[in-house]
Design a protein around this nucleic acid. Structure first.
Lengths: 147, 147
DNA sequence: CTTAAACTTTACCATATGGTAAAGCATTAT
DNA sequence: ATAATGCTTTACCATATGGTAAAGTTTAAG
């Protein structure tokens, strides 16, 4: 019944590939909640949500703890770090951007007289015409409703 | 036949949930390659790999361009930025960590004499070993706090 | 012209999702 | 004791994966 994942990242990325599950994580980021609480916003049965929770738990993104009749769910975001680390490997292929470190170094370069270090300009490999969008990028949070 | 994704992130994360596809991206990070080149390391038919490539293309993580008889595939990592941005929302729930900026500041504080310059690591790609377990210490991106 | 290469497409399969409905099971109210 | 809560589990379905084998298509060689 349960797919055999060859690597933890398989489960992590798969768990994140569903909008309902991402919304559940977003909700849990605000604090633990019961299964019924989590199910409330969605147009699906409790049974369906239980399945999603099982997947999230398998990916170690949440933990469920039964307390009497209810079940408290809590976020466990550690796997997200590994996933982010993996993606960071491809950072130099992203469209141009600035983050805290870039800003920090840029500031150093500008204010400080010393030309810090020759910035390793991310080799433009291709610059794939993608627009140099900056800011957010449609982050999750907004529970993408599926109906 | 093709699943209808409610959001781009669905396709991105799903594409990343398979070790073969992650290995393909790793290979493409070293430069474009033909379908046959990409298929070589895997114990599966070309037809099977074509399916993976179709999924990757659907997620806009690669582009295929037919040149004569062969098809060149190129990486398009832009979607990874959106995915990373989404995960960054949960950074405060990660276990204690150090990223490039932390390391930089720590170094400044501890050995204030060092010629501060976060070296761009050589980027050790796990050659499509399907197990991207490189313990990369989170490369620093992540600080992408919007707002 | 004929054949081989390099892919893609088309059946076909087995399994996992994503859902629902209904039955189970503790636990808590009444 | 009985009924209602809060989940989970068990069929059951439809669809998408992940693969294979075999046929189809271009394009390049001989």
């Amino acid at each position: 019944m349960v797919k055999h994942y060859t690597a933890p990242l398989d489960a992590t990325f798969f768990a994140l590939s569903d909008p309902t599950r991402r919304a559940v994580l977003a909700r849990l980021a605000e604090g633990e909640a019961t299964v019924t609480d989590l199910a409330a916003p969605f147009p699906m049965t409790l049974a369906a949500l239980t399945k999603h929770l099982t997947l999230l738990e398998r990916a170690r993104l949440i933990v469920r703890e039964k307390t009497g009749r209810t079940v408290q769910c809590r976020l466990r975001a550690a796997p997200l770090k590994d996933a982010t680390d993996w993606m960071a490997t491809y950072e130099r292929f992203w469209p141009a951007q600035f983050d805290a470190l870039d800003a920090y170094l840029a500031k150093q370069t500008i204010t400080a007289k010393e030309p810090a270090c020759p910035q390793p300009k991310p080799k433009p490999f291709d610059s794939h015409g993608a627009s140099p969008r900056h800011g957010n990028a449609s982050s999750g949070r907004g529970r993408t409703r599926k109906s």
